[in-house]
C-alpha cells in the first residue's frame, strides 16, 4: 500500500480549536486517585521486600558464622 494515499490533504485538516461546554475530561480524577493510592502501597511493600532480602543475607552470614563456631568447638585441639 502506498502511504501517500492514506495522508489527508492539507485543506482537510482542522484550522481552529472549538471549545465545548461540559466536554469530557482528559483525566479521570477517580483513576488518578486509585493510581496514587496503588503507588503508595507498592512503594511501601517494595521497601518491606527489600528489608526481607537484607534480613535473608544477614541470616546466611549468621549461619556461616555459627558453622565456623561449631567447627571450632568440636575440634578444640586444632586451635
Amino acid at each position: 500500500m502506498n502511504p501517500s494515499n492514506s495522508v489527508s490533504p492539507p485543506q482537510d485538516r482542522a484550522t481552529t480549536f472549538q471549545p465545548v461546554e461540559g466536554g469530557t475530561e482528559s483525566h479521570s480524577g477517580t483513576v488518578l486517585l486509585v493510581e496514587a493510592y496503588v503507588v503508595l502501597w507498592v512503594l511501601l511493600l517494595a521497601w518491606i521486600a527489600m528489608l526481607w532480602r537484607k534480613q535473608s543475607v544477614l541470616f546466611e552470614r549468621l549461619g556461616e558464622l555459627e558453622k565456623t563456631l561449631d567447627h571450632v568447638t568440636k575440634t578444640p585441639e586444632d586451635h
Partner: peptide
C-alpha cells in the same frame, strides 16, 4: 518517591 509520584498524578488533573 511517594511524594514525587502522587504529586504529578494530582497535577495531571
Amino acid at each position: 518517591a511517594i511524594v514525587l509520584t502522587t504529586g504529578p498524578l494530582w497535577a495531571a488533573k
